[in-house]
């Protein structure tokens, strides 16, 4: 696993020769697992470049930041990117641009977050070449009083054949909160396959009843469901899982 820290809005250079850092850009030179942690960041622009045939699994983590982030992912021919991402920020204003630039480039974007105060996500996926694929999964637990907005836009121009687009966003509310999901798919090509689902809702009482009927307390039942929603989406390694569980532990019973 390769670790990259972004501290005070700057990418910290490392000796790792599988990544090249060029100002705000990260160029991946080898396939593999990478972890990026944003530490005390508030305003950052970062580009990720994945060359032909590389297979990158990227875990992004941000906790307690009040952050404005612009992340751009450029994928070349047959490049494969799996992003697993967890945020529990004070505030987030994030724009994600994904450019599937060449044939068979594909991205799986798994994002889980705790909505603490005010989080806004603008996710744009541009299918610029044929047979490209995007799977976007957002899972958010909205705390009481929080605002969570997702604008998700997928684009396929006419003539860009046989693309696959999927968007799935789910927000579970732990109290009164403002939540919006705007899923858009701008498709001008008939051969495209597209699916999407968006759900905003409370914790299901039937689920709580089932768990409690096995002796699990109300607080633990909520913890289990929240943990399930967040963790199962992003498949963190042991170190990251421990960090995330510590954050989730504080939510129980809200």
């Amino acid at each position: 696993m390769h670790k990259i820290n972004v501290v005070n809005n700057k990418i910290i250079p490392s000796d790792d020769d599988s990544i090249m850092i060029d100002n705000d850009s990260l160029i991946f030179l080898d396939s593999g697992d990478y972890v990026i942690e944003y530490i005390e960041c508030n305003n950052i622009e970062i580009n990720f470049n994945i060359k032909n045939n590389l297979c990158i699994q990227l875990f992004e983590f941000s906790n307690n930041n009040s952050i404005s982030l612009k992340a751009t992912y450029n994928l070349d021919k047959s490049a494969s990117l799996i992003i697993n991402k967890f945020y529990s920020n004070e505030n987030t204003d994030e724009t994600v641009n994904v450019y599937l630039k060449e044939t068979k480039a594909n991205i799986k974007y798994n994002f889980s977050s705790i909505g603490n105060k005010n989080d806004k996500y603008n996710i744009n996926i541009y299918h610029l070449a044929k047979e490209t694929r995007s799977d976007i999964f957002n899972r958010t637990v909205a705390r009481k009083g929080s605002i969570n907005v997702f604008d998700i836009n997928s684009y396929v121009e006419n003539g860009v054949c046989k693309c696959f687009l999927n968007q799935s966003t789910k927000i579970i509310t732990l109290g009164k909160s403002i939540n919006k999901i705007n899923p858009n798919m701008f498709i001008a090509e008939n051969s495209t396959t597209a699916t999407h689902s968006s759900v905003i809702g409370n914790m299901r009482r039937d689920e709580l009843f089932y768990l409690m009927s096995r002796g699990i307390t109300y607080k633990s039942a909520i913890n289990l469901i929240v943990k399930g929603l967040i963790i199962s989406n992003i498949n963190p390694n042991i170190e990251m899982k421990e960090k995330i569980l510590n954050i989730l532990e504080k939510l129980g019973g809200e």
């Binding site: 689920e207 009843f209 768990l211 699990i216 289990l224 399930g228 199962s232 989406n233």
Partner: peptide
């Protein structure tokens, strides 16, 4: 009940 994400083992 089916509960997505909650692993049977954890439950």
């Amino acid at each position: 009940m089916e509960i997505d994400g909650v692993s049977n083992q954890d439950f």
